[in-house]
């Protein structure tokens, strides 16, 4: 198996290296890839959409269909993860572990015992080896809002700087995952439950597809944002810029929710009781 694989890989590699001799030199401005359709995007983008970041303009406007179906792929991945892994059976664990914070003593309480009430002195923990990490928790509590604000900036400023819905959505999801890692999965699901994440996945895709349908209802092609000029009260070029922002927000919501869903299900193997 190993020898066969190695031979196969070396044959494939040598064929590809032979093919690479026919390639245009590295960084050639006249190469076929940069001489047909891309000059149009570079030269006309600001004129057509008033978006200086060409990647955002091409991503959400010229190739809007492509991005919409990419978003649907991500949505499908989140849903598939839930279908494959989620266990809805509620089984209460036999014993619970609590830590008495002032003394640092770990209490193991059997199912018939009386669980301590929710207070500042007792903290429920997942397993015996979980340390009492005040510094990590406090730092994450301080950092998470700033990460979220940065993510919103990345989504909203994607027209003028690197960024956009995908990156901002991933950073928003990462903030939530950081919270879940630093505290535990139960407190994260209290903040952002399963129903909410699935609803947000759907809402993101719905915003994207709904913008397209709205353009169609207003008399132009699907995802042709210049149709929104009348609704938004601006000229068609600015309307395309605003339309890009709307779909980027949709993409951001969908990506954020899918990342959080993936983490919740993978970290708890579908049980949503204890995380990393």
């Amino acid at each position: 198996m190993k020898i066969g694989g190695l031979i196969l890989v070396v044959i494939l590699g040598s064929v590809l290296i032979y093919g690479s001799l026919e390639f245009p030199p590295w960084g050639d401005p006249a190469s076929p890839a940069s001489s047909h359709v891309s000059p149009y995007y570079i030269e006309k983008s600001v004129e057509d959409t008033s978006v200086p970041n060409l990647v955002t303009a091409v991503l959400a406007d010229y190739r809007g269909y492509d991005t919409m179906f990419e978003t649907i792929v991500i949505f499908t991945a989140g849903i598939a993860c839930i279908f494959l892994l989620r266990i809805f059976r509620k089984e209460e664990t036999e014993t619970r572990l609590y830590r008495h914070i002032p003394t640092g003593i770990t209490l193991r309480i059997e199912k018939s015992g009386k669980f301590p009430e929710k207070s500042a002195a007792f903290e429920r923990i997942d397993s015996v080896w979980v340390p009492h990490d005040l510094i990590v928790k406090t730092t994450c509590r301080l950092i998470v809002p700033f990460i979220q604000i940065f993510a919103l900036y990345v989504i909203a400023h994607g027209h003028h700087s690197p960024g956009g819905g995908f990156q901002g959505g991933v950073i928003l999801g990462a903030a939530m995952i950081l919270y879940a890692v630093a505290f535990n999965l139960r407190s994260a699901t209290r903040r952002m439950g399963e129903r909410l994440t699935v609803l947000l996945c759907t809402l993101g895709v719905f915003i994207y597809a709904g913008t397209g349908v709205l353009c169609m209802l207003l008399g132009l092609n699907y995802l042709d944002y210049s149709a929104l000029a009348g609704v938004l009260g601006v000229d068609p070029v600015t309307a395309r810029s605003h339309g890009i922002l709307i779909v980027e927000i949709g993409v951001g919501i969908a990506v954020m929710a899918v990342m959080v869903t993936l983490y919740y299900n993978l970290a708890s193997a579908g049980k949503h009781d204890e995380g990393l």
């Binding site: 970041n53 955002t56 990345v154 995908f166 990156q167 990462a174 983490y263 993978l266 995380g275 990393l276």
Partner: peptide
């Protein structure tokens, strides 16, 4: 490719690693 680099920094180095660690932990 600044946009792609930004995406890879947040996705590849951030989320992917967390997902791998979560799966290995489970």
């Amino acid at each position: 490719a600044v946009d792609v680099a930004f995406t890879e920094a947040s996705v590849g180095a951030g989320i992917s690693t967390v997902l791998f660690v979560a799966a290995v932990f489970r």
